[in-house]
Amino acid sequence: MLEANANPAGALRPLLDRRLVVVTGKGGTGKTTVAAALALAAAGRGRRVLVVETGRDENVPRLLGHFGEPVGHAGARMPGGPWAMRMDPYQALAEYLKLQLGVPALITRVLHQQSFRGLLDAAPGWRELVTLGKVWHLEQAREEGRARFDFLVVDAPATGHGLTFLDVPRVVVSAIRSGPLRRHARWVEELVRDPERTLLLPVALAEELPARETAELVARLRDQVGVSLDRVIVNAMQPAPFPAALPDLDRRLAALRETPGPPPSTWAACAAHLASRHALNRHFTDEIGEDTGLHVVELPLLAGGVRGPADLATLATALLAEESA
């Protein structure tokens, strides 16, 4: 499935060498699927993995084959080994304030004030900041003399918002003049920008709009955030539908006089459709590689969709194919 790219595969640092991988991309590109697949792959290689969802829905546990209660902010261990949680910014904020100020009763009271909630609902950036702050805290957490999690995967909000997400610590550092929040935002900013620990993993689809948006995202991230990027995931690639020896199978099907079942035109139309989708994906994959200058990792479109751990395992193999070589 993976085809040679401009970059030699050996030049890429293994994904699993990092501590924190932030998965981002336009809505509908399959970020969550990629995040879950990466978590499963890392757990399969013996890492202590935490995968963090940041949206309002909880999708990772189901993909990993967990069918119990929602895991929520507290998190839970998933089948296959990784831990999963869905970040609740209000809980993360309460945890942070309690840790900083140590007056739990007061903090609980203030956080439950309706007018304070109203102010929070309108205030920009704090959700992103406390989310990243909690991720920082989890990255630092130690247990039994070692890091509690040695590999963290964050399923970031969709782009547009995804960019703001990683940029918030920098904005806070420049908008706030003093105080502990400024200091902590700086720590988080350092984590985001540290190429040793952190990698941003954009997920794209090989179609016109997502390809363009991915190129714009990568350019803005490089200019603005300074986060490490080395590859882009192109998800849901229609695999080549015909063997290489038969590149014109659709036309040959159309020329047949008789076919079993559906008429030759139907056979040919299905073949032509798949070939055309493949060509379209190929074209925009190349464009994404050229426009971003990043190594492209292709994940196949699974005909039956991505429903559970078996499908994730297929994607995980493709994700890490170049690293096991």
Binding site: L97, Q100, I107, V110, R177, S178, P180, R182
Partner: peptide, 9 residues
């Protein structure tokens, strides 16, 4: 509370 976290200003 906000002031203690965000500093003066």
């Amino acid at each position: 509370l906000i002031e203690r976290i965000t500093g003066f200003g």
